[in-house]
């Protein structure tokens, strides 16, 4: 199938050969190196299909045999978040990065790097355990009474559903953290609870605070966000919202939690806690 190129796109040249520069490392703490591959992308190819080509025939542009590049991937339709990497200097999902868009001419070069805010497992594959850990910090769940049949959930206005739905499309890909100047690599797990939690978790706290049942643990979530590494560590660079592939209004979430924590702290102060 050949898609009509959209107006903004330079028409890609069929049969062209392009170069893929990959920043590789054999494991955590191992030195990194660059390897370059030359590939002929299929029409409508994305980064994944190019990496698959390289895996099937791992020979560098110089003709040296090497090992297949390791990378993380899953759904390949930008809904699981696994294949996030830094492409031409910008963090994004590699599945939805079309070669025709970013390398339309012969000889174009695409650079692939692992996310730098998470420890490398190997090559482009990083360990984002901290990201999930941070969801625990803000108790990102609705505290239900268990899975027994206890009737339906709270009714909700269509307008509120629309807000919650968007917040709930966060796939924990980590783009917001990679682009955030306040979120830095932290190998030491013991420091995870006191270093910046990141936009995604703050936004999830907002999501659950908005839910009628979720609201019951609102104070816990806000308490977690008052401490070191909480919402006040946000530096308002607002990169998060610009790189979020799901266009989640992360900066609005940060501001909303800013308001909630302000009110919460004042209430706490006056209630003597």
């Amino acid at each position: 199938m050949s898609a009509q190129p959209s107006a903004s796109r330079t028409p890609p040249i069929a049969g062209r050969r392009i170069r893929i520069k990959v920043k590789r490392a054999d494991g955590p703490g191992k030195p990194s190196r660059w390897e370059e591959f030359e590939v002929q992308p299929e029409p409508n190819a994305n980064i994944i299909s190019v990496l698959q080509q390289i895996a099937a025939n791992p020979v560098t542009a110089e003709g040296d045999h090497t090992s297949p590049v390791a990378w993380d991937s899953g759904c390949l339709e930008e809904v699981c978040g696994a294949c996030t990497m830094v492409i031409n200097g910008r963090v994004r999902q590699s599945c939805s990065c079309l070669i025709d868009d970013i390398a339309p001419a012969p000889g174009d070069v695409i650079t692939l790097e692992p996310m730098e805010k998470f420890p490398v497992v190997r090559d482009l594959w990083v360990d984002r355990a901290r990201l999930f850990h941070n969801l625990k910090r803000v108790k990102a769940w609705v505290p239900i009474d268990g899975t027994y049949s206890l009737g339906h959930g709270p009714t909700e206005s269509a307008a509120q559903q629309a807000v919650r739905y968007v917040l709930s499309t966060c796939m924990s890909c980590g783009c917001c953290l990679e682009a955030c100047p306040q979120f830095t690599l932290e190998d030491d797990e013991t420091r995870w609870d006191t270093t910046f939690i990141g936009a995604h978790a703050i936004s999830q706290a907002r999501l659950f605070n908005m839910h009628e049942t979720g609201r019951q643990t609102k104070a816990d979530r806000l308490d977690a966000l008052l401490g070191p590494g909480g919402v006040s560590d946000c530096g308002n660079a607002q990169n998060c919202v610009k790189v979020c592939p799901k266009e989640i209004p992360l900066t609005e979430s940060i501001a909303a939690i800013g308001r909630a924590t302000t009110l919460h702290a004042i209430a706490q102060w006056f209630s003597g806690r």
Binding site: G89, R90, P181, D233, G235, A237, Q238, N239
Partner: peptide, 18 residues
């Protein structure tokens, strides 16, 4: 506690952060 990254994310807000 932060690290500038305006070389990669050249957004106006990010410049202002720096």
């Amino acid at each position: 506690t932060g690290r500038f990254n305006t070389d990669r994310y050249r957004y106006q807000d990010n410049w202002r952060y720096m």
